[in-house]
Simulated scan of single mutants.
Amino acid sequence: MPSGSRYRVAIVGAGAIAGAHLKAVQALGDRAEVVAVADLDGDRATGFATQHGVPQAFTDVPTLLEQARPDLVSVCTPPGAHRETVLAALAAGAWVWCEKPPVLSLAEYDELAGAEGEQGPYVGYVFQHRFGSAARTFREQVAAGTLGRPHVAVCHTLWYRDHDYYAVPWRGKWETEGGGPAMGHGIHQMDLMLSLLGDWREITALMGTLDRDVQTEDVSVAAVSFESGALATVVNSVLSPRQTSYLRFDLTDATVEVEHLYGYDNSNWTWTPREGVDASGWAPATDEASSHTAQLGAYLDAMDAGERPPASGHDGRRSLELVAALYQSAITGQPVRRTDLKPGNPFYTALDGGGRYTPHRPGEDAR
């Protein structure tokens, strides 16, 4: 429950994504308020606080936690700083909402899960694409079998990031970003796919560093099987001039598709029934766009109830598992099962298996 009449929210990291978190809090009216911000760059923290009317600004997390005493901490730092910030917030009794990618390895993810209390505080992760009304409706239809069984899925994140994008020191490095487009970009669509289809079973993948001067991949392709028996193709790229995020699901009685870029509403989705099938009643009853606001509302509902929020625990781990296995398969040249991702596996501890990936350049043989 909140310490006052509204949940007290602190934002850690005052970069571009912090604005989305601030707007989400503000959009929820009297349910929450941003009371503090922290950033290693004191001028940036102060500037953010002044611009947005945030009462307190700090340059370190321990002081923020001690003086601002937030109920919820929004973590908006680069991925390499997630672990320490989340651990400090949980130890202080604050719930945590952390930007993607969650952390740099499954080992770190499980460490943070171990720091949660049995009844909270919990740490949840920002996967806002699963929270729009269209995805929610489709998820209910899959669970109820309304459209039949899922058979085939396509999950493509075809984005474009130029060379200047990777001039930021922490980007494109295993030790600070955790991976390339599979980890930092495609993870959103993969999480949406997994939230709809459930646990995956096995993956076979390829990846390459074809054009960008990075330590990680800049493109990957994979084939995935699910516990349900469904099969999917997954492509993640930062080399695609016509950008799109595209998911397609072929079920017994319908094909369901969504094409968007960084967010959707109902107009981005289509339901195509099999010939002879009555599709009346399939359309979503409301039109709520995917957004930070939609997910934060669901997160605060969980806080109200004292329950684990969505996109946390096992539910939040699925996408990181898939990314880790994608990298392991692409680097080793072998299929990987979800059950392989456990302590003792080098890809459980580091997503490149501890330095096992050497980027290949144009004209070189792919690994």
Rank of each mutant, 00 (worst) to 15 (best):
C76W: 00
Y357M: 09
L247I: 12
A135F: 11
R6E: 13
F138A: 13
V221H: 05
N236L: 06
I11N: 03
L296S: 02
T286I: 11
M193Y: 07
L300R: 07
G15H: 01
P70K: 06
S237V: 02
A20V: 15
S240G: 09
L65T: 06
R338W: 12
P121T: 10
A223T: 14
R130W: 13
G263P: 03
S280N: 11
R338F: 14
M207E: 07
L247Y: 01
H360T: 15
A107I: 04
T176H: 07
L106Q: 09
P335W: 13
G42C: 07
R31D: 05
A14N: 07
A88S: 09
V25L: 00
A89L: 06
R83P: 10
L196S: 04
S290L: 07
E259R: 10
A223H: 12
E118H: 06
A16E: 15
I331D: 06
I11W: 06
T349H: 15
G4T: 14
V234Y: 03
A91D: 10
G316C: 14
R356Q: 15
T244C: 13
R136Y: 12
P310Q: 15
Q295N: 07
L40N: 12
L104V: 10
Y122T: 06
G198D: 01
A135N: 09
G148Q: 06
S312I: 05
W282Y: 03
V238R: 01
Q189V: 15
G120H: 04
